[in-house]
Amino acid sequence: MNEQPPINPDPDANGPTDQGDQTPPTDDRAALNASASPVTIPPFTPDRFLRDLGIDSTIRWTALVVVVVAAGYLILSEQTDTTLGLAVVMLLAFGWISINTISATVWRTLPSITELIGHNPVGAEALLAEHLKRRPLVRWVRLMLYHRLASIRHRQQRFQESAVICQSLLGQNLGPARRQRGPLLLMLLEAQLQCGNLHGAYAALLELHAQPLPLVESLQRLALQTRYEVLAGHDAAALAGVKQKLMLAELMPADHCGAMHAMLTTSATRAGHQELADWLWRRTCLLCSPAQVKHLFSSPFSIGVVAPPDPNG
């Protein structure tokens, strides 16, 4: 390779962009298709979400109370025929198991919904709409359904709705689904950044730092935190420990690694570290395709990447 394609995006696109603009990027066809798809679940409202949880809770507690009272009565009552009593107990137990079977059935379909979100968001939404109508669901199963709804909205680039769902979920006791707290906070952080809400993003970041995260999620947090710092103009913070940050960035997928380099290039350029900026920029050009670099610069969700001046002219 003698001549590397000159990667010098339109300088007009390099400046800070309107953070509130939410036009989807042109090259993300899957997301565009998804956003153009018919919506089968009405827009999320916290009130309806809380009502759903309340109805589930009422049905389940009522059923439990009936089971316990009936069982207690049968055990304590000396006049009841033992065989009949046993049959009633078994019937109640069967009813209780049947109620829980609804949740178990929905729970078993969660992985397939997750898989569908990746390649068929319309199908995922249809399936989700069907499951959200079922009652009563165990609390954490319903919370997980709403988590999938947040993922779909995030993928459809409806970031404001996604952020509201995440906030509503995070306000609840997640119970056995508490492992989803990290991914929810990451989704919230990204949605807030996409909406240009730096205060909201900061609050999500603070919570994320109080949360033990697996490696992959830590890497996502690093990328989003860097993006926040670049957006907020905290260039010194973005460049602090840059060597370690780059070592971690190298563990990310190539395009994310390239985006991290591009963000750090911006900070290094703005902070006047020209040599570092040049080095980072050369790596960016190897890690990202010209189209990816152009997208980074021209996307409405741009982080305002500023390329260092071309040393060759």
Partner: peptide, 12 residues
């Protein structure tokens, strides 16, 4: 070749 190897990240 650069484009073909790019998905490898730094391992390219």
């Amino acid at each position: 070749l650069i484009d073909e190897l790019r998905p490898l990240g730094v391992d390219a």
